[in-house]
Design a binder for these strands. Structure first.
Lengths: 331, 331
DNA sequence: CTGAAAGCGCTTACAG
DNA sequence: CTGAAAGCGCTTACAG
């Protein structure tokens, strides 16, 4: 059992070279004679030397850390994104610090400062609050923002095609034969909500259907409230586009409690494409966001930030698709 | 917009004191005259100085990082634990690095090394693989293990009362009137599975009921397989204890597909008490683990590791409870 | 109470 | 190709 950790100087001594040479061998930053490489490698092996990442970070001003700031990791969509970030990070020798903001902008700021103090290499953030720009003010780290308008303070934004998502969801319900379609519309302050609404609205108009909606947040509880409102305000509803897969689950619960059959009486299209959506009974027809790609891309942007210099905020929009399952069917 | 980060020496210069004094003021590690405290505080404010955590870590050999190593963060049980760890960590000025092992012991080892290199303060780990002890060999960080037998290499183990969990689940089904109860039993190599089985078994014997079981892992897909096996091998089954809430969801899907009504034909008791369990339709009766407490306790053990010296591995067992909902009822 | 100095464990100009 | 030395930005014995 190894207790005393070896330092680079221990390796150097054992190999009969300087610490600089050991460092060069480890990092491949300069040519070292074959003979010395061999001796160094052997010494590393014998001493079980592991470079101290903190010391390296101090000099390099990079800790190979990516901060992922989310309102709540209990949101499954976020945890699937986090999964992708972690994997992409790990493959590149980076690690991810998971920062739960609880929708609290003080906590968000605290995390931004914390990550800055740690020489993190970048921040991936999804934030619902409007103060984000203020919080970011003065932050010197590259920031990749999910689901937001571009802003010169961000390095990039990543999102999926929300306009198309709203559109294909509506088209599908129309093709199934629905004529009274209601959208669970996210808050107007979110770019994604507005875009989905536009796509939904355009599809409806094309078929002379009046766009109907009730505003709702993305979580389960808000979904329950919104579902009740929909039934109250639109008694003839025959198709509903949920704001998320979670709210589709809320919707199903409320409809069932009201004795409605899904999909016979009312059809449901979820949104996100969580793994959960196909696990439910009935399995949820849903608009699939390329969750894994979103996470990987965001991580890659930070990891490769130096390779491609860019002055302005790049916007990335990834395609969505529709997965037809059991909550919709041809009438 | 602040671009150039201030260093402790900038603050010192501005306040007309030494860096040492600034450090003392920030950390409260020694008495400093009121007058100087005032000047330092003012200088910190003016320069917008934020201490570099990496430099501090290097000297202190602690980066206030807790590593949380899990098979998969897509497992909702794990993400709820992670949520609690993150919160407890944040409140104490620590951060959490989320490490997804993908059940891959090489990745696990890589993360253990990475955390060691980063002067992390401890590791919280849930691992299903039997190599854990080998991987940990030589790791000098305090390790808190979830759901495992105690071992002198660990600082502590934390788990909930699995024996009692199995017992109250069985008792409840018996009280509801079930007589052909099947346990979806986790793999024998897991301590938690064995304990739950004992509890289940004891409850059955007390009522002269034969303990029946099929082995299954905790995930959704394994749950589907296991559910099919149960129906095949035990056609008279009238009550099933799932290995997790996820597998209860699998179970419900399979039973529904076979035209069985829950709870009229077959009752289900889930396990874990995920938030998801009450969101499902029907809402799942389940054995509730104190998930938040498990996470917080594990984090606290690491954060306070110095305050209480201990030579041997402490075992913590937290109580479980039963939440009765819609998948069980009095016959 | 306070400062100069050493040290945390690496990396990299610099000089050879 | 290689080493001595400086430096990354803090903290803390040490001496006063």
């Amino acid at each position: 059992m190894v207790i005393n950790l070896a330092h680079i100087s221990d390796v150097a001594k054992l190999a009969g070279v300087s610490s600089a040479t050991v460092s060069r061998v480890i990092n491949g930053t300069a040519k070292v004679s074959e003979e010395k490489v061999r001796r160094v490698l052997k010494a590393i092996e014998e001493t079980n030397f592991k470079p101290n990442e903190i010391a390296r970070s101090l000099y390099k001003k990079s800790s190979r850390i990516i901060g992922f700031i989310v309102p709540s990791i209990l949101n499954i969509f976020m945890s699937e994104i986090g999964y992708a970030i972690e994997d992409e990070a790990f493959q590149n020798g980076y690690k991810m610090i998971l920062c739960n903001s609880d929708e609290n902008s003080e906590k968000e700021s605290a995390y931004i400062n914390m990550l800055t103090s740690m020489n993190a290499d970048g921040i991936i953030i999804t934030a619902n609050n409007e103060n984000l720009e203020k919080e970011i003010h003065g932050c010197t780290l590259p920031i990749v923002v999910l689901d937001k308008d571009a802003n010169s303070r961000y390095m990039a934004t990543v999102q999926s095609d929300n306009y198309m998502g709203g559109k294909i969801a509506a088209q599908h319900l129309i093709e199934c034969g629905c004529r009274n379609i209601v959208l669970m519309k996210g808050p107007d302050k979110y770019l994604s909500s507005r875009q989905r609404f536009c796509g939904y609205s355009d599809a409806c108009k094309k078929h002379n259907i009046e766009p109907l909606f009730i505003e709702s947040l993305y979580g389960f509880k808000d979904g329950i409230e919104c579902s009740n409102k929909i039934l109250k305000h639109f008694p003839n509803v025959d198709g509903i586009i949920a704001s998320s897969d979670m709210s589709a689950i809320s919707l199903y619960k409320v409809l069932t409690e009201h004795g409605k059959n899904v999909p016979d009486d009312i059809m449901i299209v979820g949104y996100d494409g969580l793994q959960l959506s196909k696990i439910m009974t009935p399995e949820i027809t849903t608009v699939v966001q390329p969750i894994e790609e979103i996470g990987r891309l965001a991580a890659r942007l930070i990891i490769n930030r130096n390779k491609c210099k860019m002055a302005e905020c790049k916007e990335y929009v990834l395609p969505v698709s529709l997965k037809i399952r059991q909550t919709t069917k041809l009438k």
